[in-house]
């Protein structure tokens, strides 16, 4: 190789700080952390907390892209900090901010209560008209039936899609990408019978119709869930439902 890769010794992180007992407006603190090619952003944050400033607050748990708790903005882009190499953001300084769209409690920690409520609003669980007794065995499913919803079941509730969605940030009543994708996950599940109940919530303006298909939710999703696609498919089925009920008002109960 004629060109040698220059690996920096250190990299600067500009970290969003908000300590409500100290300041009424957030500020940025700069930290110089050692650079390692194998380090993720989360490793650098952990270094800051362990060695530079123990008061820095942020959420993380699994550090393997499964728990969905370490989502933040890195240079303005929503990412899982445990799955984003420092190297990909060189030369720095790297700006770390909390996800947009959620009120900040402290530093990099947002209040996610709104999303939690929305998950239950859309009834993101299996609904059966009648549970069959345990003795009757499992609800069987073919591989093709599994394929129908598997993609949407990959969601880890990391909320990167909410942060990327301008509609949600402008109108927080909007149910938003992940919750609608998860509603779709259960609608498309052959064992589920709750599509109608969910439609009542989702066919409102704050449900699917608020979406203008910016498409950024799908772009930032670390799990390939494609919430934008889920919402568009939902619009199609809601439309067919609507015209069916216009044509046959009696059959829809």
């Amino acid at each position: 190789m004629s060109e040698t890769l220059t690996v920096p010794e250190t990299v600067i992180l500009e970290v969003f700080r908000y300590r409500p007992e100290v300041e009424s407006e957030p500020t940025f603190d700069s930290f110089e952390v050692p650079f390692h090619p194998e380090w993720m952003i989360l490793d650098a944050l952990n270094y800051i907390k362990d060695d530079l400033d123990g008061s820095l607050s942020y959420r993380w748990a699994c550090r393997m892209g499964v728990c969905g708790s370490c989502g933040m903005l890195a240079n303005g882009q929503p990412v899982l900090t445990c799955a984003t190499y420092l190297e990909s953001l060189l030369p720095g300084p790297i700006r770390i901010e909390p996800l947009e769209g959620f009120p900040v409690i402290r530093d990099l920690v947002g209040d996610i209560g709104d999303f939690m409520n929305k998950l239950s609003d859309v009834k993101a669980w299996l609904i059966r008209d009648e549970e069959k007794p345990v003795e009757d065995g499992e609800y069987l499913q073919t591989p093709s039936q599994l394929d129908d919803y598997k993609q949407y079941s990959m969601c880890i509730n990391c909320m990167l899609c909410y942060s990327a969605c301008p509609v949600y940030r402008l109108e927080p009543e909007f149910i938003g990408p992940a919750a609608i994708a998860l509603a779709q996950r259960y609608n498309l599940d052959s064992r589920d019978e709750g599509a109608e109940e969910r439609m009542d919530v989702l066919s409102q303006h704050d449900g699917i119709w608020g979406c203008t298909l910016v498409g950024e939710c799908t772009e930032v999703c670390p799990k390939g869930v494609d919430p934008a696609g889920a919402i568009q498919r939902y619009k199609v089925s809601a439309t067919m439902d609507y015209f069916k009920s216009l044509l046959m008002p009696r059959s829809s109960s």
Partner: peptide, 8 residues
């Protein structure tokens, strides 16, 4: 249900 489907 909203009349949004017609417009859509």
């Amino acid at each position: 249900r909203s009349r949004e489907p017609i417009i859509w």
